[in-house]
Nucleic acid binder design. Structure first.
Length: 306
DNA sequence: AAGACGAAAGTGGTTGA
DNA sequence: TCAACAACTTTCGTCTT
């Protein structure tokens, strides 16, 4: 995150942080430089070193899923006016008009986009926190002008995808694609773009995060599920997981685990819920058998059945 | 007949010159 | 910007249950 140190309009250094609204304002010309600031660190640290106040983020409680967050920028409140000399009034009014135009355009966009975001989010039954984060990301993207040249929907989808990853409740690109009606590769593209532009760090997604969801849609027992996680951990130790698609690995672990526990599912079934093909399952599955000597365990349950 | 397996060719994305 | 490359998919033929 970079902070503006000089006002781009008048090059003044007399910047003022309005904590109530989360804005940075140039005292010299009244320009709102950074609006609705967002920190992307996981743990909220001190807001800035100058005041060193504890847990100071923006003051007012706010939600990003309402289009203006109740924090719309208003240039020219009475109190502000008095802090400027009379000679600056004209400039000030001009700025206010300009600011107004910009902010209504942004807010119109946000209003639409956040409606779409809510729709997709509820379709996927995403937790509120993920939705909030996605809205935050989208808001930032709009302010940085990253939506230009892209469809609003795809940016929404990208923001949601990024948010899911950060909260370790991954959805596959396929699921996002189905929910939003945007092509998979398009989501991927905008996702990469906005995370790069906004400097959002994303942990590589962990296959373990997928297992619970896959297991429940396959109606597998809790034991099978935890066994799958166990297998997965071994696989990671054996370095079978790097570079591979996390969904394929999760799927293969589940498949093997289901075999061991006598809850056989076909490769087809597992492949479908994981959104990969049977072939991928087979490849991962084979690697798992080779590296982890699981054959005995499978044979054991086979004999039991007899 | 359905599922599992593997080979071969194709696709989209990343990387490095 | 292009070619090499790895992961994954599609398709299809064969084997197993």
């Amino acid at each position: 995150m970079h902070y503006v140190k000089k006002c781009p309009e008048c090059a003044g250094i007399n910047l003022f942080l309005n904590r109530e609204k989360g804005e940075v304002i140039c005292k010299d010309c009244g320009l709102v430089i950074e609006d609705k600031m967002v920190e992307f660190d996981q743990e909220w640290g001190e807001f800035d070193s100058e005041t060193g106040e504890k847990k100071g983020r923006t003051g007012a409680p706010m939600t990003y899923t309402q289009y203006d967050q109740g924090l719309g920028t208003e240039v020219g409140q009475k109190a502000d006016l008095y802090s400027f000399g009379a000679k600056d009034r004209n400039k000030f009014f001009r700025l206010r008009k300009w600011q107004y135009r910009i902010s209504t355009a942004i807010e119109r966009n946000l209003k639409l986009a956040l409606a779409e975001l809510k729709r997709v989010s509820s379709y996927l039954k995403l937790p509120k926190s993920v939705e909030e984060e996605a809205a935050r990301i989208y808001t930032l993207a709009v302010q940085r002008g990253l939506v230009r040249g892209r469809s609003m929907e795809s940016v929404v989808a990208g923001a949601l995808y990024a948010s899911c990853r950060r909260h370790e409740v991954p959805r596959t690109l396929d699921e996002l694609s189905e929910a939003s009606g945007i092509e998979k590769k398009e989501i991927g593209r905008t996702y990469r773009f906005i995370t790069r532009e906004l400097g959002i760090s994303i942990l590589p997604s962990n296959p373990a995060d997928y297992i619970a969801r896959f297991a429940s849609s396959l109606k597998l027992s809790a034991e099978t599920q935890s066994k799958a996680v166990e297998i997965l951990e071994k696989a990671q130790k054996a370095e079978l997981t790097s570079g591979r698609g996390p969904t394929g690995i999760a799927a293969a672990s589940l498949y093997v685990s289901a075999l061991i526990h006598g809850e056989k599912r076909t490769q087809r079934e597992v492949a479908d819920v994981a959104g990969v093909t049977e072939v991928t399952i087979r490849n991962r599955y084979k690697e798992l058998l080779d590296e982890l000597s699981l054959e005995k365990e499978i044979r054991k349950t086979k004999k039991k059945k007899k």
